[in-house]
């Protein structure tokens, strides 16, 4: 179990690096699908089975298909290096390193080795999730449906030929 976690985590980090470093958008999209699928495996390992299935179906399935379709539709090619100043990466890299170090410090300090969870494994099947969703989170659920409706209408209006 533990070995599988580190293998999948390594795959996720490498694929995320590939998302960031590839210059061709379609390669980035394919790498992102690898990240999403390895996250689904991690969800399985941590005991969130239903979430893992949703991750693969909705994220790796629906959302990424949308991305790949748009990349093909717009014929997005390899990006050409801009003539911007190199200041942003030069300043950004140390800031990102500070951000990472800060988080590593906090996580290691707050959750030292041996502070493993004593909580019993959760029942995170569709029944438990659905019960919680329709009992405690009915209002956010309904608001979500309105959000989806607005998104559909917005996408249709925006993608019309004459705006």
């Amino acid at each position: 179990m533990a070995a599988l976690f580190y293998i999948v985590a390594g795959v996720a980090v490498l694929a995320a690096l590939s998302v960031v470093l590839q210059r061709t958008p379609v390669y980035s999209a394919l790498s992102l699908i690898v990240v999403l699928c390895s996250l689904a495996v991690l969800y399985l390992l941590i005991g969130a089975e239903f979430l893992a299935v949703i991750q693969v179906i909705v994220y790796a399935g629906a959302i990424m298909v949308l991305f790949v379709l748009v990349i093909m539709l717009l014929n997005a090619r390899r990006e050409t290096p801009g003539d911007r100043s190199r200041l942003a990466p030069l300043l950004g890299a140390p800031l990102l390193a500070v951000f990472l170090a800060e988080f590593f410090f906090v996580i290691v300090k707050q959750l030292p080795r041996g502070s493993e969870s004593s909580a019993a494994p959760l029942d995170s099947g569709p029944a438990a999730i659905g019960g919680l969703l329709f009992r405690n989170y009915v209002l956010p659920f309904e608001v979500t449906s309105v959000l989806i409706l607005v998104a559909i209408l917005g996408a249709v209006v925006l993608a019309k030929k004459e705006l």
């Binding site: 991750q55 994220y59 959302i63 949308l66 991305f67 996408a155 249709v156 925006l158």
Partner: peptide, 13 residues
């Protein structure tokens, strides 16, 4: 995930 889906649809449009 739901908000990300909505965001992807509108953003790509």
């Amino acid at each position: 995930i739901v908000v990300a889906a909505a965001e992807a649809a509108v953003g790509l449009a």
